[in-house]
């Protein structure tokens, strides 16, 4: 089962898949991808026992770029999919990759309950405070007054704070 970690010391590069990374040039997501690969290589974990589950949005392309098991699921539901994976096989290292829209808007309920259940999964929330994939509408973390395509006179909603939500759960 743990062939990887038992036999070889993996490098950051070993955690990369053969897929072209398709985020916009200059996007901060590149830095997160590179850092996650680097960190995993220092943890002594194996590729085959690692599962990345994502929802929908720019951030959620993440699993395609990892040479682990991956599931690019549907909008907002990654924490629930990850719950199923983890309950089915608690030996797996399960990661959720999500964004501010995915986790805090459409998937707010699942985000709260995944944290409440405390299943020993990791959630990476890429908070860029905007809807990137759908090209620029305000998100639940956009600041009050943020002008976007869907809020030409400024957002009328106050942002919520992901860590406060997490602690509150």
């Amino acid at each position: 089962m743990c062939a990887d970690s038992a036999t070889v010391q993996l490098t950051a590069k070993d955690f990369g898949s053969d897929q072209d990374v398709r985020w916009c040039p200059g996007c901060g997501d590149y830095a997160i991808l590179s850092q996650v690969k680097k960190v995993l290589s220092t943890l002594g974990v194996s590729r085959e026992n690692t599962v990345f589950v994502s929802g929908i949005g720019c951030s959620s392309r993440f699993p395609y770029y990892m040479n682990t098991y991956g599931f690019h699921s549907i909008h907002g539901r990654a924490p629930a999919v990850a719950t199923g994976v983890k309950v089915a096989n608690p030996e797996l290292d399960v990661w959720v990759v999500t964004g501010d829209g995915d986790a805090l808007s459409i998937g707010g309920n699942h985000f709260l309950h995944a944290i409440r259940r405390n299943l020993d999964i990791n959630i990476l929330l890429f908070n860029n405070r905007i809807y990137g994939l759908t090209k620029g509408q305000y998100s639940p973390t956009s600041p009050f007054g943020k002008r976007t395509k869907s809020s030409p006179v400024g957002s009328v909603d106050y942002p919520l704070y992901p860590l406060s939500v997490a602690i509150g759960a």
Binding site: V81, A88, H113
Partner: peptide, 26 residues
């Protein structure tokens, strides 16, 4: 048998998809 009472219907279905991916009868 593992039963999971999810937070809503959608999460219940999503968890089943995840569990099937992980290799059990879901």
């Amino acid at each position: 048998v593992s039963t999971f009472q999810a937070e809503d219907e959608i999460a219940a279905m999503a968890s089943v998809v995840g569990a099937a991916f992980a290799g059990v009868f879901a």
